[in-house]
Write a protein that binds this DNA or RNA. Structure first.
Lengths: 170, 170
DNA sequence: GCAAAATACTTTAAGCCTAAAATATCCCCG
DNA sequence: CGGGGATATTTTAGGCTTAAAGTATTTTGC
């Protein structure tokens, strides 16, 4: 169960500070908007340049970086999405010939998935383009600014996780 | 058409700087992860506490803040989603009795949508809870840190928009 | 050894989302 | 006035996503 400030404490805090939750909310909205702009463009370019969706790109990235073939379960864990979701993505990538699938020799329930030769080539091209796009979109940020953002976003994530109660798996 | 550095320039840049696009990519991934954590929890809590999805909450927020009833087209613009998407969301909110819909007196093509009395009450409760959740999740950030993040995220968004070519509508 | 629990995966039902085509209406210009 | 382009909305086809239920296989504990 997550611990949250008792109602009374929360009200005290609000009373002490002239601004209630406004700043936090505005920050959240800005973070969200920022991510929407970048992600929207990445999706658009992946679709137009490679006819690939972001989820498929993500799945291929997992396979590309993995030393060995992975099961659907491992993929679903690493991508932090549901099992059924991975089933569908794998089906569609198989149709495109970008990955291959074979039964696990150790466990007859499991399937091992890996990139085909074409899948590897294709992924390398996409990853290179993706890196260029991101660098291009963030080009106005200095090294210092990137570093500051990295640090503060890490802190933000940690704060959120603490409030959610991650660390203890739910 | 967007102007991008020619391949040769890009390689020169990489050669000059020991780090290629790595920092930008890592920043993007961190921004994304940060947003996932917060958004995931907001969705979960909206569903468990109010049996409402985030898109429906967003739509109601638009109606709540608007001085007058809005058409589907205005909603779709403000929410930055497609027309067909709004059609579906409005259908489902109508079923729940949270919004109402009437033909525009000025334009027989258009429909005017607004919150019902129950919709307003319900939205106020959700918005209050949402503010509390966000403030709670961002509680470890100081006022200064929030301010810095606001500024740098604004700069990030502006940089991305410039690279995308927003400003000129596509 | 074998029943029960756990695990790997698929299926299903429902919702969100988009682009593109279809419909209905409005508005302008000749 | 009347045709043609613009606009408001819906529909359609396809993909992503989840939770929950179902299937097959493995593992565990007695």
């Amino acid at each position: 169960m997550q611990e949250r400030a008792a109602p009374l404490d929360a009200e005290t805090k609000v009373a002490e500070r002239p601004h209630d939750h406004k700043d936090e909310l505005r920050l959240w909205l800005r973070l969200f908007a920022c991510k929407e702009v970048i992600e929207g463009e990445v999706r658009r370019r992946l679709r137009h340049s490679f006819d690939v969706t972001l989820p498929r790109f993500d799945l291929m990235a997992q396979l590309y970086r993995a030393p060995k073939a992975m099961t659907l379960g491992e993929l679903s864990q690493r991508m932090m999405v549901s099992n059924g979701n991975v089933t569908g993505l794998v089906d569609r990538l198989l149709e495109q010939g970008l990955i291959s699938r074979r039964p696990s020799p150790k466990d007859r329930r499991a399937q091992l998935v890996s990139l085909t030769a074409e899948g590897r080539r294709f992924f390398r091209a996409m990853a290179r383009a993706n890196g260029d796009w991101i660098a291009d979109m963030l080009t106005d940020l200095s090294g210092d600014e990137i570093e500051t953002l990295m640090r503060l976003l890490a802190k933000t994530k940690a704060s959120a996780r603490k409030a959610i109660g991650n660390g203890v798996p739910r």
